[in-house]
């Protein structure tokens, strides 16, 4: 299992468009991929779930990835989350 704390940089937080990008990426992998906020786990493969995290700009969340392709998934998702999701 891989974990990393990430600060959300997207202007609007994890809103529909950024969330859609994350889901699209996450669905490419077999691993379980989630964001953890206030001890709640939100699956990165479900847009409803991810949206309902309500993560905002500058908020800190934990990226948690576990499974057979966890390294590739972890790297891709971390890069995406730390980048500018609005662009």
């Amino acid at each position: 299992m891989l974990e990393k704390l990430i600060v959300i940089k997207s202007e609007t937080g994890l809103h529909a468009r950024p969330a859609a990008l994350i889901v699209k990426e996450a669905q490419k992998y077999r691993s379980k991929i989630a964001l953890v906020k206030n001890d709640n786990e939100y699956s990165c493969k479900s847009i409803m779930n991810l949206l309902s995290s309500g993560a905002r700009k500058d908020e800190e969340v934990l990226l948690r990835v576990s499974g057979e392709d966890e390294e590739a998934a972890f790297e891709a998702l971390a890069k995406l989350l730390e980048g500018n999701l609005e662009a």
Partner: peptide, 16 residues
Amino acid sequence: AAIFEAHIMILMDPEF
């Protein structure tokens, strides 16, 4: 148009 992409994802959402 990007908003419709999100709409499609809601329909494909495993949880939903």
